[in-house]
Amino acid sequence: MTSLLPDSAPPFDQPIAVLKHCHDKIRKQLATLQNLLTHLPSHGADAAAQQAAQAVQKYFNQAAQLHHQDEEQDLLPMLEATAEGIDAELLRTMKPEILAQHEQMEQDWHILNSQLDKIANGSGAALSPDDVARFVAAYTSHMEREEGHIAPMAKRIFSPTQMQLLGEAMQRRRNIGPAAAQAGGIALADLRLDYGRASLSEEDTLADPVAQFAKWFSEAMKAQVNEPNAMSVATANSAGRPSSRIVLIKQYDERGFTWYTNYESQKGQQLAQNPYAALLFFWPELERQVRIEGRVERTSSEDSDKYYYSRPVKSQLAAIASRQSQPIASRDEMEANYAAVEAASGGKPQRPAHWGGYRLAPERVEFWQGRQSRFHDRIVYTLQADGSWRKERIQP
């Protein structure tokens, strides 16, 4: 009734493939359930039936629970933090449905699990065809929706870093691999509680501020901070009058911190007059903030093209249709502009010259960790003339 040959599982550096592999194993267990329905009337709870029931119970009591946690605690929050345009709209609809399905399938499983208990120990041979059919249909439909929409979205919009973070979280949940060793097998919920008593010392921080930012950003993702990629961008005009707004970071590496926008917007005009800016990440759940200051320059046309064409088509069209920060008479006029651009594009909009990326090359980076009695920890990196970084503590 069950295969004795295990399928080769993909590595966790391919987390979406791992999730698909979990679905394949779920389908095998569902097939075993259906086979039990035909086996039991003729053979009762014999050794083969007991073995099959035990296998199904083991999977849905353990592995399936971890799979749902992968989706609820990591995959879906990461998608919410990244998705834009039509992807974000689809996710807003699908996420509540997926969570509701998880809850309903869990309830249906409890009913089946009690029946399988008796089959597994040989004390009974009753398995409800209706309960099995409902459970199989629900799971099958659920997996088809995820494979049709959620998995392709993740593969399309997640960066390599996000894929790595997702894979590490999945490993840690299973207490396997280097990710589990680094975290000591601590559950995310426990990790979050520990941050209420966190501290930050010079020894806690890495030598390079971008590497330290990557460490903290990874921890924010793992702790399911709300919008961990949201940052305040503060700019000033030639007269020194400042303004700030929230944007989403799209990339960070040794070159700096990158976001995309309209070059003719208020921030674009201010950066043309005064090419310096300050970024602020605030993660209140972890009592942390990161302040980054430096000179800003435009990304290459190639980088801007690459990101622009990775966006949903509707977001591409909106970048053309909107003269960001400029007055307009009404929402209706905005919609008319969008419709005109959509009609003219033929479904293949081209990146406009006024839209692209900015990259801030950091010169000063401060890591702030909240502490009791407002006696906070502040570690500051300052770029030196030779390209090295000076690290020091400053007072709260």
Score class of each variant (00 low, 15 high):
Leu286Pro: 12
Gln54Ser: 13
Asp130Ala: 13
His142Asp: 02
Glu147Met: 01
Arg378Ser: 04
Pro242Glu: 08
Ala47Pro: 00
Asn121Ile: 05
Arg295Glu: 15
Leu248Lys: 11
Lys20Cys: 10
Glu285Thr: 15
Leu193Tyr: 05
His67Pro: 12
Gly240Val: 07
Glu335Cys: 00
Asn237Thr: 09
Ser114Lys: 15
Ala272Ser: 14
Glu392Lys: 06
Gln395Val: 11
Ser141Leu: 06
Ile176Gln: 11
Phe12His: 14
Asn274Gly: 04
Leu166Phe: 05
Ala361Cys: 07
Gln57Val: 01
Ser310Gln: 14
Thr93Asn: 03
Asp190His: 09
Glu392Ser: 07
Glu203Leu: 10
Gly196Lys: 13
Thr2Ser: 06
Leu286Ser: 10
Pro96Phe: 07
Ala63Leu: 12
Val380Phe: 00
Tyr338Gln: 06
Ile379Asp: 00
Ala52Trp: 01
Gly356Val: 05
Thr38Trp: 01
Glu97Arg: 09
Ala319Cys: 04
Arg323Cys: 04
Gly346Trp: 05
Asp130Tyr: 05
Phe217Cys: 01
Tyr139Gln: 10
Ala336Pro: 02
Asn35Ile: 00
Ala53Asn: 04
Asp130Val: 09
Arg390Thr: 07
Ala239Gln: 15
Ala340Gln: 14
Glu287Asp: 15
Ala64Phe: 12
Tyr358Pro: 03
Lys250Pro: 05
Leu79Ile: 07
Gln34His: 02
Arg323Glu: 14
Lys348Pro: 00
Leu360Ser: 06
Leu188Cys: 03
Arg393Thr: 12
Ala55Val: 01
Gly148Ile: 04
Gln34Ala: 09
Arg331Ser: 08
Leu66His: 15
Tyr252Val: 05
Lys314Asn: 15
Pro152Glu: 04
Phe375Ala: 08
Trp259Lys: 03
Ala353Met: 04
Gly268Tyr: 08
Pro10Gly: 10
Gln324Val: 09
Gln104Trp: 03
Arg245His: 10
Ala45Arg: 02
Ala154Pro: 09
Ile292Cys: 11
Ala181Lys: 12
Tyr276Thr: 15
Pro275Ile: 08
Asp87Glu: 09
Val247Thr: 11
Arg174Asp: 02
Asp7Leu: 13
Ile292Glu: 11
Asn274Phe: 13
Thr161Ile: 05
Cys22Leu: 04
Gln162Met: 13
Ala180Asn: 10
Ala125Ser: 15
Met231Glu: 02
Arg27Leu: 08
Glu297Phe: 05
Thr38Cys: 00
Glu293Gln: 15
Trp259Ala: 07
Pro6Ile: 07
His142Gln: 03
Lys391Ile: 14
Arg245Gln: 09
Leu99Met: 09
Ala125Cys: 09
Gln101Phe: 01
Gln316Ala: 06
Asn226Cys: 03
Gly185Ile: 05
Trp368Glu: 08
Asn113Leu: 07
Ala181Gly: 07
Ala137Pro: 00
Gln65Asn: 04
Ala336Asn: 12
